[in-house]
């Protein structure tokens, strides 16, 4: 199932032109036609059903092809939050934002505050705003229509839309008041967002590996392909290892996403740490092996390395998640650590 899905999505994305335009509504429409944007939405609510593992296949392929669509934000975060809250999903790409300090919703249903760096904010059909409830184990989800707020367009290091949305007490849609969701904490949704980036990173890092291996086989110096030199081979092997390690942890975190909140959270944290590390190695090694041509925008490499640099910092860099994971391990001691490490079971 996932092999067939992967093949379908990769075929579609490989045939889509214009990888660095920031937003491709035509591509989004084609993903929607295939039912891929409805993954994670229950079938009785007009969705395609499917699991997070299916969404991960698509998100990884989007990373591999640097697809200019907010798929990971849509499927991993926005759909999850809005579906849990029972809020009907508007048609079109959805994105998500975490309510900043000072975010307020007045009694009349109007909200105030600035949502910073919202992925594809200006292009989204709706923004799922996730706020903490007073009860720490719950969130309040609101749906915001970006057409009704002031948008300051921005981009991340990879050239993807990251927009500031200023919501200044304007009369906005009723749904902005929000729906409380019990049993899901803000930390769970943060981990889900980090996992979305981790999965995308595994796609882009795998692409950098493929590009770099190909280049090392083609580029000749001293009368032979540079990939014949052991020094280059060792670098490539290290990169391959980092990519596989990141893929394995991201896959496990996806598989554990609906398990106990602690295991799901910790696995997502570990996935973001591993993906961030792989991103750093992919950027450094990819550029080192490509030499000067890779340092230009005349070569495709930058499309992926610039995104990797952005994604490894978004929703928490390695240092953030390492610190939180370290705190969890220190609190649980060796018993807790071993329970964590073996929580994926052995499914050989």
């Amino acid at each position: 199932m996932s092999d067939l899905l992967s093949e379908t999505v990769n075929d579609l994305l490989a045939g889509s032109p214009g990888v660095d335009t920031g937003w491709d509504p035509g591509l989004w429409a084609r993903l929607a036609d295939l039912g891929l944007t409805g993954i994670g939405v229950p079938e009785e609510r007009g969705g395609a059903g499917g699991t997070l593992a299916d969404a991960a296949v698509v998100a990884r392929a989007c990373g591999y092809h640097a697809a200019p669509v907010p798929y990971a934000d849509h499927a991993f975060v926005a759909v999850r939050a809005l579906t849990a809250a029972g809020i009907p999903l508007p048609d079109g790409p959805l994105t998500a934002a975490f309510a900043p300090p000072g975010w307020t919703v007045a009694a009349d249903g109007t909200a105030s505050g600035v949502l910073r760096g919202v992925p594809w904010g200006r292009h989204a059909a709706g923004v799922a705003v996730i706020a903490a409830e007073e009860d720490a184990g719950a969130i309040r989800v609101a749906l915001l229509d970006p057409a009704l707020v002031r948008v300051s367009a921005g981009v991340n290091t990879g050239g993807e839309p990251r927009d500031d949305l200023a919501v200044e007490g304007a009369p906005v849609a009723e749904a902005v008041r929000g729906v409380a969701v019990r049993g899901v904490a803000v930390r769970d949704m943060r981990a889900r967002a980090a996992l979305a980036r981790a999965v995308a990173i595994t796609g882009a890092a795998r692409r950098v590996l493929d590009l770099t291996v190909r280049y090392a086989g083609e580029r000749e110096q001293f009368g032979r392909p540079i990939g014949r030199f052991q020094a280059v081979q060792q670098e490539l092997a290290e990169l391959a290892g980092a990519v596989e390690q990141a893929e394995a942890m991201a896959d496990l975190a996806v598989a554990l996403a609906d398990e106990s909140a602690d295991a799901a959270w910790a696995a997502a944290a570990a996935a973001k740490v591993g993906a961030g590390r792989a991103a750093g190695i992919a950027v450094a090694t990819g550029h080192q092996v490509h030499g000067a041509i890779g340092f230009t925008q005349e070569h495709a490499l930058h499309t992926f390395t610039r995104r990797l640099l952005a994604w490894r910092d978004e929703y928490g860099a390695e240092g953030v998640w390492s610190a939180e994971l370290g705190d969890l391990v220190a609190a649980g001691g060796s018993e807790g650590l071993w329970r964590l490490l073996t929580s994926g079971g052995v499914h050989a």
Partner: peptide, 19 residues
């Protein structure tokens, strides 16, 4: 503790690969 967290993340990924 952050260093420990980083170590655990890598250990966990390797165990997953080993499985």
């Amino acid at each position: 503790r952050a260093d420990l967290g980083d170590l655990v993340a890598r250990l966990w990924a390797l165990r997953t690969m080993s499985v």
